[in-house]
Design a protein around this nucleic acid. Structure first.
Lengths: 230, 230
DNA sequence: CGCTAGTTTGAGCTAAATCAAGTGAGGTGG
DNA sequence: CCACCTCACTTGATTTAGCTCAAACTAGCG
C-alpha cells in the first residue's frame, strides 16, 4: 500500500525535516484499516486519539432527528481527524468512512517543529474549507455548489498528488454528494447532466474531469483558498 | 462602560486565576471603539492582532462576486477574532461590525494557564458553531433555521450573562438575519410572523423572547452544543 | 442469472425567491 | 414643531429552483 499522498500533502504544507519524516513513516507502519460506512469517530463519545488519513475518503457528518443527513466536510488523504490540540475531550461530530480507509495515529505535537507547522496549517485549511462550505450552502444555487465543490476537491487532491492532470478519482455516490451539498440526489443527478452538456464537468466511472478549471471558477464566482504558511 | 460580559464568558469557559483577571482588566483599559458597518478585519489582508469583543455584535462575512452576502457566524461579547494561534498570517474572511463595537487586544497566550484554557475552549466552541451553521444551511427549512439560530444565540449570550430570563437583546435587522440564514429578508419576515403566531418567538423593539426553549428545541430537532472543558 | 446499489427519467408540487408597492418610526434640519 | 427623508419592516402577486414520489434502467457481483 502506498501512503505517500499523506506524506506528500504534509510536506507541501510545511517542508518536513528528517525527524518528521522518520516519525511519520514509523507511524504509518502501524496503520489501521476500515471498511466503507464504518464510524471512525462517534459524536459525543470520547475521542480515542487523532487519526491521519492515509488512503480513502471519510466525512464528518451530522444527522438530524428525522434522519436528514448533512456532511460537514470531506476528509481526504493527508487530513487529520480529531486533533483537538488541547481540550474538549468530546467529539463534536461523527466521522464515517465513505470508502475503504487506512489511517494511522500521527506523531504527537512537539515531535518536530516542521511537523507542528504542518499540523497548524492543516488546521487552518480545515477551517477555511468549513467557511467555504457555509458560503456554498447559504448563497449558491445547485449548479454553483457542485462546481465549487468539485474545484475545491481538485485543489485539495492536487496537494497530495492525487490528481491526474485535469482529472481525479471521485469515489462517492451522487447520494453522498447530495448530502454534502444540501440537495437531493435526484437534483444532483440532473445538474450533473447539465454540467456535462455545458462541458463544465465530465464524471464517469469514478473519474471526475474539469476541462477548464479557470472558466468554471469564474462561472461559479469562486474565491481561492490560500495555502500560505509561515 | 461595562465590559463584564466578556470577562463573565471567559470565566465560564475556564475558571480564571488571579493573573488572568488582572491581565484581562489591564487589556480592557486599552479598548478600541468601532461604529456600525465598519471592517474589523479585511479578507486577505494581514491580521493586525487578535481582538476580544467587549461589547456589541460583529460577524464574519463572505461576499460573492455578484454581491450575494453570507454571514459565516456572529461574534458576540467574549468572542475572540483572529486568534490564529500560530501561523497563517492572512485573514481567511472579513469581519464587520453590526452594531457599535468595543474591542481590546487580549493578553497573549501563555499569560496564564487558565486563560489559555479559556482560549482553547473558546476556539473549540467557535468551530462547533460553524458546524451547526453548516447543518442549518444544508438541511433545515426556513422555520427551523430561524428557531435553531435564535436558540443558539440565547445559549451563547447566556454564557456572558447577557440574557434576561427568556429574553435577550437582538440588535440586528431582518436583512442581516437573512444573510446569516441563507434566506431573503422578505421570507425571514414572513417566517418570523408565523413564529410569533405559533408562540415560538416574540421579537419586538430589539428584544427576542423564546417563551418555551425546550419546546422549540424539540420542534427544530436541535442538538445541544456542549461547553465541557478539561 | 438474479440481486442490489446506484443512476436516470418523468410528472407534479411547494418552499422560497422575486418584484413591486406600500407603511411606519426615528432623526434632522428648517 | 413640522416636513421630509431614510431605513426597516410589511404585504401582495407571481415565478421558479429544487423537492417528492414513483417507476425504469444499468452495472457490478456472488
Amino acid at each position: 500500500m502506498d501512503f505517500s499522498p499523506a506524506l506528500h500533502r504534509l510536506s507541501r504544507l510545511a517542508p518536513m525535516d528528517h525527524a518528521a519524516v522518520s516519525a511519520l513513516t514509523e507511524s504509518m507502519g502501524r496503520s489501521q484499516h476500515y471498511r466503507p460506512r464504518r464510524d471512525l469517530v462517534v459524536e459525543g463519545r470520547d475521542i480515542p486519539s487523532p487519526q491521519l488519513i492515509l488512503s480513502g475518503w471519510a466525512a464528518r457528518v451530522r444527522i438530524l432527528l428525522d434522519g436528514r443527513r448533512q456532511f460537514l466536510n470531506f476528509l481526504l488523504p493527508g487530513d487529520v481527524v480529531g486533533h483537538y490540540h488541547h481540550h474538549s475531550p468530546v467529539a463534536p461530530t461523527s466521522v464515517i468512512t465513505l470508502t475503504e480507509v487506512t489511517t494511522c495515529v500521527p506523531p504527537d505535537w512537539g515531535t518536530s517543529p516542521s511537523l507542528d507547522e504542518a499540523y497548524a496549517v492543516a488546521h487552518a485549511l480545515d477551517e477555511a474549507y468549513l467557511l467555504a462550505q457555509i458560503a456554498r450552502l447559504g448563497r449558491m444555487n445547485a449548479m454553483e455548489r457542485i462546481g465549487d465543490l468539485m474545484l475545491e476537491l481538485q485543489e485539495r487532491l492536487a496537494m497530495s498528488g492525487l490528481t491526474q492532470g485535469a482529472s481525479y478519482d471521485l469515489p462517492i455516490t451522487q447520494e453522498t454528494l447530495a448530502d454534502a451539498l444540501g440537495l437531493t440526489a435526484v437534483h444532483v443527478n440532473r445538474m450533473l447532466q447539465a454540467a456535462r452538456r455545458a462541458g463544465d464537468l465530465l464524471w464517469s466511472s469514478r473519474s471526475m474531469t474539469i476541462p477548464d478549471p479557470k472558466a468554471l471558477s469564474r462561472k461559479v464566482g469562486r474565491a481561492q483558498v490560500r495555502v500560505s504558511s509561515g
